[in-house]
Design a binder for these strands. Structure first.
Lengths: 377, 377
DNA sequence: TGACGTCGAGACCACGTTGTCTCAGGTCGG
DNA sequence: CCGACCTGAGACAACGTGGTCTCGACGTCA
């Protein structure tokens, strides 16, 4: 039998300040000073300390440091998103990470899958590890459980969706107004029967987008038909099915507004499977990669995800730096990107009921791949 | 002026075990026992402690706990990926997170952007926070800098790419063999001039894929032409440009093998801009969302990202549980997914030099959206 | 040369928690 | 009825670090 056969994970013997101090023949406190770059240390002594640290492979323990330090900062923040694998969440994570990096702050990640219980559990886990702050895309309807943590000094900033029953900073898109813009864009192409395909009705932003859809129709004097509204589509498959069902109605919509990117993709897939992608107009909420490579390209209301993440992080750090101004919600503009699918005229849908004939492509030539975009609120 | 106007961020006064102990009239150690669920506590006393904790909003400080605890575990791991916003990295993060969650372990994220210096810096930052382990998609050519940390007890598992100059567990795809499969698939459609468009030559996996490409050609007795090999394409734009240039050669390739998903997308875009997407065959490495929605669908060698992440995490935790078997590399099978682009026959390219005539679509009908896949090594 | 000021290094302790030990009180067998 | 044994709660110290204070050495100037 070789040496050390103890099966239980024994504590790794990492060198500490004490070890470095012993080797450099100084007091531990002096090592601390050198590590923290305190200038009032004899250069020769500092060199000796650094040499000893190098020789031992010493690395400071930030865990212990933050415990003792006056500010108690751990130099880490927590981030709660819908799903780290979702392109929207992924982009958000990355932009927050970039701002955090500027300050040497690390980012902890948690995916919620729209589960309010997970939101609370993970928030608690982050807090138990004493993160300096949180960036949260809430899944639940009530963030009041965070009030005690705010008072205990943990800064919280919300991204994408505003908090409920809690006062805190938030960075969001104007979902309602953007939905209005999207629906009006479809109406401008002559559409009068416009379907709505949406995410979970309980998600604030989904509700706001539906509200915008309804409002746009009402202002235009068009009826809001229940048969043309489908919600709670949480998977691509559900969106495919809902699209098929809606288009099979006696009076099917000639255009669709999809309120989230999985839904948009599912809808797009259904239209292609039915061969109707050039006859039924569609505008989606949220941009996604390759939307411009499809034929027709998918017109979307694009959120500026990077801006949302960057702003949320900047606001969080401003708070951590002592900003005590009242919490505020920052609204980031969205942008309509016309790529073809949203500009299909109503005539295309009415011309051929269900034939195999391809209508002439109503999209701009391929050369103009990146289409123009109009700025909105 | 209100109260506490001290501008400097004062330490938040969070209740500690001592506070709970005082209120419950027990010793701090008893609170510790209750919090940790030690069964040898008088039930009445435990109830009193829990009530006091609830009343004060007490939350244990895992930072202090891990400092004092025998195993020194922080119940957090670090993950170094190429870019958290990239779909491949995002999927990897999510699958690691899911395994970690089962154990109440949180995940710290760091994006490297293929920068070896960042790899070392971030690994160091994670270690300074005493993560229990690391899952690394390395950017650099030498991971020897981690040897000391391994010996100090930090477990490291590599994902997607094997480590260099370091013995550690790794979970990877068989890149070389998969590239051979992809190229042979193109050869099966009659192609003899096959171009290679690849990522940074310094990335291990890119080199392996190029190697497989070369090997497949050599075995088939075909020449390996330098003009048909382009590397170091780090952006979609670079891939677009390289594709254009290669197709403008006097003897252009009739098929392309792209070694990474950004390159695949760039190549796809270039083909569409040239109107050649139905004449030049293409197989990409790495699957990506919407690859099946394009026309033709993009044929790919799909890596099983979820399996790679899940396995890497499981191996990491097995190590943390005390597994001391020698480090090993686990190979995860890839899968050829035929969607149309890879099955375009050589005849399509040779038929029409540069006309506007559309050849009959050589792809399967739209109904069979999810095409068949063959299993490989 | 001596009183004083300055400056840098170390002693000491606390941050919040838990491992270890002690000890009071109870149980049980001889 | 007493000693051995067990049970459960508290005292104490320590994890690795940094804030605070002390103290010796040195320099300055009268």
């Amino acid at each position: 039998m070789p040496e050390g056969s103890s099966e239980q994970p024994k504590r790794p013997n990492r060198p500490t300040m004490r070890d470095v101090a012993l080797l450099a023949r100084v007091a531990p406190k002096t090592v601390s000073r050198v590590v923290n770059g305190v200038p009032t240390v004899d250069p020769a002594m500092a060199a000796r300390v650094r040499e000893a640290a190098r020789k031992l492979g010493y690395r400071p323990n930030l865990t212990a440091s933050s415990l003792r330090r006056g500010d108690g900062r751990t130099r880490s923040i927590g981030m709660l998103v819908e799903d780290a694998a979702n392109p929207y969440s992924a982009a958000l994570i990355r932009s927050v990470e970039d701002i955090a990096r500027e300050r040497g702050v690390l980012v902890l990640i948690g995916s919620l899958d729209e589960d309010p219980a997970r939101e609370r559990e993970l928030a608690q886990e982050f807090i138990d590890r004493r993160v300096d702050g949180l960036v949260v895309v809430p899944a639940g309807q009530d963030q009041g459980y965070l009030r005690a943590e705010q008072q205990a000094g943990t800064c919280v900033v919300f991204a994408d969706r505003e908090p409920r029953l809690l006062e805190a900073d938030a960075v969001v898109s104007d979902n309602r107004e953007s939905a209005v813009t999207a629906v009006r864009h479809l109406m401008a192409a002559g559409h009068r029967r416009i379907g709505y395909l949406g995410d979970l009705a309980s998600i604030t932003t989904a509700a706001q987008r539906l509200d915008g859809y309804r409002h746009a129709l009402e202002v235009a004097g068009l009826p809001v038909a229940d048969a043309l509204i489908r919600q709670d589509l949480t998977t691509e498959q559900a969106a495919v099915a809902a699209t098929r069902e809606m288009l099979a109605l006696p009076e099917p919509p000639t255009a669709l507004f999809t309120s989230q990117n999985l839904v948009t993709i599912g809808c797009s897939r259904a239209l292609r499977e039915l061969g109707m992608q050039d006859r039924v107009a569609m505008v989606g909420f949220d941009d996604f990669p390759l939307a411009d490579l499809l034929r027709p390209g998918i017109s979307v209301m694009a959120q500026d995800v990077e801006a949302i993440g960057t702003l949320a992080a900047r606001i969080l750090f401003r708070r951590l730096d002592g900003d005590r101004t009242p919490p505020a919600t920052t609204v980031v503009p969205t942008r309509l990107i016309a790529r073809g699918s949203g500009e299909i005229p109503v005539a295309a849908a009415l011309a051929v009921p269900a034939a195999a004939v391809e209508p002439p492509a109503p999209e701009p030539p391929a050369a103009a791949a990146r289409a123009e975009g109009a700025l909105d609120v």
